Lab assay of single mutants.
Amino acid sequence: MAAAAAAGAGPEMVRGQVFDVGPRYTNLSYIGEGAYGMVCSAYDNVNKVRVAIKKISPFEHQTYCQRTLREIKILLRFRHENIIGINDIIRAPTIEQMKDVYIVQDLMETDLYKLLKTQHLSNDHICYFLYQILRGLKYIHSANVLHRDLKPSNLLLNTTCDLKICDFGLARVADPDHDHTGFLTEYVATRWYRAPEIMLNSKGYTKSIDIWSVGCILAEMLSNRPIFPGKHYLDQLNHILGILGSPSQEDLNCIINLKARNYLLSLPHKNKVPWNRLFPNADSKALDLLDKMLTFNPHKRIEVEQALAHPYLEQYYDPSDEPIAEAPFKFDMELDDLPKEKLKELIFEETARFQPGYRS
């Protein structure tokens, strides 16, 4: 834990890192770190609560700039109880001085990944967590956004079992017609939660990839272990087919990539493993919904509104309290091709509203 900075004593240090967030945020305490930044909790002297502050230093890398800009653009436009918001952003007053960006968010005690390492969940908890994931996802999908990296560590939890989806750095506007060349190379989302079509096709992607990830998360809540822990690309596919069985001819016809289709045709026939054999203690309604989410063919996979209306979630289902976005989200430009200098300018502009004396 960093010592509390005395008023006016300059930035606090946390594990050798400068955290320049005073005077409003003090009493910093280390939480963890990701690929390009550290997260601390801090005391907000204005709202009198502890908050989470993520320090991001992305400006050396085009990919990190892209992810940072995506996350900020999306989260500043989203407003939903099951999606983490941005409360404040701290950065230098000029673009030349801006080396880091500090993002202030609600402090959540833990995440689903940490929880599943230590606790076996009751059916009631599984049901409530799944409902909140789908409630947040309904809003995301209504904005025409794909999260693309749903996994237990991106689901934040607090002691009252509130759940918030975080990390929109890989999110995209849904565009089933656009052929994202190089899709697989830039697709760094965790393999275990990846839909089979991501490994088999490169053309376009749809909201059904997020539903697949939610199915993987439900299976993990039922058993405290990942359902498809593939060691590499082909191993991942083999794990999936080992449980779902061989795809039907109709399902194979959806695979545009001939090499991928021929690979699947070359494999020995596998039978589907019954879900109640894998999860003998699970609620039968939970397994019915799991089956509809972990469907090989993305066109037959359940959609988020149908999933919310499934009998497993009937005690929570309330369409009048499951809000959607006001308007579909649009990125003005494809960020993939922009140089990091341009992305830095866009991050600077996007964060201006939090600067003292800002006038829109």
Results as ranks from 00 to 15, higher is better:
Ala2Glu: 00
Ala6Thr: 13
Ala9Gly: 11
Ala9Ile: 03
Ala9Pro: 05
Ala9Ser: 13
Glu12Asn: 11
Met13Phe: 00
Val14Gln: 08
Val14Cys: 11
Val14Gly: 15
Val14Leu: 14
Gly16Met: 04
Gln17Gly: 07
Gln17Ala: 10
Gln17Val: 10
Val21Gln: 09
Gly22Ile: 09
Tyr25Asp: 03
Tyr25Asn: 14
Asn27Ser: 09
Leu28Asp: 01
Leu28Ile: 09
Leu28Cys: 10
Leu28Ser: 09
Ser29Asn: 12
Ser29Cys: 14
Ile31His: 01
Ile31Lys: 03
Gly32Ile: 04
Gly32Trp: 01
Gly34Phe: 04
Ala35Gln: 05
Tyr36Gln: 00
Met38Phe: 09
Val39Leu: 13
Ser41Arg: 03
Ala42Trp: 00
Ala42His: 05
Asp44Ser: 06
Asn45Leu: 09
Asn45Asp: 07
Val46Cys: 07
Arg50Val: 09
Val51Ser: 02
Val51Gly: 14
Val51Met: 04
Lys54Pro: 06
Ile56Trp: 13
Ser57Glu: 02
Glu60Phe: 01
Glu60Ile: 01
His61Leu: 15
His61Val: 07
Gln62Phe: 12
Gln62Asp: 11
Thr63Arg: 12
Tyr64Ile: 12
Cys65Met: 06
Cys65Leu: 10
Arg67Tyr: 08
Thr68Cys: 01
Thr68Arg: 02
Leu69Phe: 04
Leu69Gln: 14
Arg70Gln: 07
Glu71His: 00
Glu71Cys: 02
Glu71Ile: 01
Glu71Asp: 13
Lys73Trp: 12
Lys73Glu: 14
Ile74Met: 04
Ile74His: 06
Ile74Ser: 05
Leu76Glu: 01
Arg77Cys: 03
Phe78Ala: 05
Phe78Ile: 15
His80Glu: 02
His80Leu: 15
Ile84Pro: 02
Ile86Val: 01
Asn87Cys: 01
Asn87Glu: 03
Asp88Asn: 14
Ile89Cys: 04
Ile90Asp: 02
Ile90Gly: 01
Ala92Cys: 00
Pro93Trp: 02
Pro93Asn: 05
Ile95Asp: 01
Ile95Met: 06
Ile95Trp: 10
Ile95Ser: 07
Glu96Leu: 02
Glu96Trp: 03
Glu96Lys: 14
Met98Glu: 06
Asp100Gly: 00
Asp100Ile: 00
Val101Met: 15
Val101Phe: 08
Val104Ile: 13
Val104Asn: 04
Gln105Thr: 08
Asp106Gln: 03
Leu107Cys: 06
Met108Asp: 09
Glu109Met: 08
Glu109Gln: 11
Glu109Ala: 04
Asp111Thr: 04
Asp111Met: 06
Leu112Gly: 04
Tyr113Asn: 15
Tyr113Leu: 09
Tyr113Ile: 10
Leu116Trp: 04
Leu116Tyr: 09
Leu116Phe: 10
Lys117Met: 14
Lys117His: 08
Thr118Arg: 11
Gln119Thr: 02
His120Gln: 14
Leu121Gln: 15
Ser122Cys: 14
Asn123Ala: 10
Asp124Gly: 03
Asp124Phe: 05
His125Val: 09
His125Lys: 09
Ile126Leu: 10
Tyr128Glu: 06
Phe129Ala: 06
Gln132Ile: 09
Ile133Thr: 00
Gly136Cys: 04
Gly136Pro: 01
Leu137Thr: 09
Ile140Gln: 13
Ile140Leu: 14
His141Leu: 15
Ser142Met: 08
Ala143Trp: 07
Ala143Gln: 12
Val145Tyr: 02
His147Asn: 14
His147Thr: 03
Arg148Tyr: 11
Leu150Ser: 11
Leu150Val: 03
Lys151Phe: 10
Lys151Trp: 09
Lys151Glu: 10
Pro152Asp: 06
Ser153Lys: 09
Asn154Tyr: 15
Asn154Glu: 12
Leu155Gln: 15
Leu156Cys: 05
Asn158His: 12
Thr159Trp: 13
Thr159Cys: 14
Thr160Phe: 11
Leu163Met: 10
Ile165Pro: 05
Ile165Leu: 12
Cys166Pro: 10
Cys166Trp: 01
Phe168Asp: 01
Phe168Ser: 11
Phe168Trp: 09
Gly169Leu: 05
Leu170Ser: 02
Ala174Asn: 07
Ala174Asp: 05
Asp175Glu: 14
Asp175Ser: 06
Asp175Gly: 12
Asp177Pro: 04
Asp177Thr: 04
Asp177Ser: 08
His178Val: 12
Asp179Ser: 03
Asp179Arg: 12
His180Gly: 09
Thr181Lys: 06
Gly182Met: 06
Thr185Cys: 11
Thr185Asn: 12
Glu186Thr: 06
Tyr187Pro: 01
Val188Gly: 13
Val188Gln: 12
Ala189Val: 08
Thr190Cys: 04
Thr190Gly: 11
Trp192Gln: 12
Trp192Glu: 12
Tyr193Phe: 15
Tyr193Arg: 13
Arg194Asp: 05
Ala195Leu: 03
Ala195Ser: 14
Pro196Lys: 13
Met199Gly: 08
Leu200Trp: 03
Leu200Cys: 09
Leu200Glu: 12
Asn201Cys: 05
Lys203Met: 12
Gly204His: 12
Tyr205Phe: 14
Thr206Gln: 12
Ser208Lys: 07
Ile209Arg: 13
Asp210Trp: 07
Trp212Phe: 12
Gly215Asp: 11
Gly215Lys: 13
Gly215Gln: 13
Ile217Lys: 07
Leu218Thr: 12
Ala219Pro: 12
Ala219Ile: 10
Glu220Ile: 07
Met221Gln: 05
Arg225Ala: 07
Pro226Ile: 03
Pro226Gln: 06
Phe228Ile: 15
Pro229Met: 04
Leu234His: 11
Leu234Glu: 12
Asp235Val: 14
Gln236Ser: 09
Leu237Thr: 06
Leu237Met: 10
His239Asn: 15
Ile240Met: 08
Leu241Phe: 11
Leu241Ile: 11
Leu241Pro: 07
Gly242Leu: 10
Ile243Asn: 10
Ile243Gln: 05
Pro247Glu: 03
Pro247Thr: 14
Ser248Gln: 07
Gln249Cys: 05
Gln249Tyr: 03
Glu250Thr: 00
Asp251Leu: 08
Asp251Glu: 13
Asp251Met: 05
Leu252Arg: 08
Asn253Gln: 12
Ile256Asn: 14
Leu258Gly: 09
Leu258Asn: 10
Lys259Phe: 07
Ala260Phe: 02
Ala260Gln: 02
Leu267Ser: 05
Pro268Gly: 03
Pro268Leu: 11
Pro268Glu: 11
Pro268Ile: 03
His269Met: 11
Lys270Gly: 09
Lys272Ile: 15
Lys272Met: 09
Val273Ala: 05
Val273His: 03
Val273Ser: 02
Val273Phe: 03
Trp275Asn: 11
Asn276Gln: 09
Asn276Cys: 06
Leu278Lys: 03
Phe279Asp: 00
Asn281Ser: 08
Asn281Asp: 08
Ala282His: 01
Asp283Phe: 05
Asp288Met: 02
Leu290Ile: 07
Asp291Tyr: 15
Lys292Pro: 06
Met293Thr: 03
Met293Cys: 02
Leu294Ser: 07
Leu294Ala: 11
Thr295Trp: 07
Phe296Leu: 15
Phe296Trp: 03
Asn297Arg: 11
His299Arg: 10
Lys300Asn: 15
Arg301Val: 06
Arg301Glu: 09
Ile302Phe: 15
Glu303Thr: 06
Glu305Pro: 01
Glu305Lys: 14
Gln306Asp: 05
Ala307Tyr: 00
Ala307Leu: 01
Leu308Met: 14
Leu308Phe: 04
Ala309Tyr: 03
Pro311Lys: 05
Leu313His: 05
Glu314Gly: 01
Gln315Cys: 00
Tyr316Ser: 00
Tyr316Val: 09
Tyr317Trp: 00
Tyr317Met: 00
Asp318His: 05
Pro319Arg: 09
Pro319Val: 11
Pro319Ile: 08
Ser320His: 03
Glu322Leu: 04
Pro323Gln: 03
Ile324Cys: 06
Ile324Tyr: 05
Ile324Lys: 05
Ala325His: 00
Ala325Gly: 03
Pro328Ser: 11
Phe329Tyr: 14
Phe329Trp: 01
Lys330His: 01
Phe331Leu: 15
Met333Ile: 15
Asp336Thr: 10
Pro339Ser: 13
Pro339Thr: 14
Lys340Cys: 05
Glu341Arg: 10
Glu341Asn: 03
Glu341Val: 13
Lys342Phe: 01
Lys344Cys: 03
Glu345Met: 07
Leu346Gly: 13
Phe348Cys: 09
Thr351Val: 04
Arg353Trp: 04
Gln355Lys: 15
Pro356Lys: 07
Tyr358Asn: 11
Ser360Arg: 14
Ser360Leu: 14
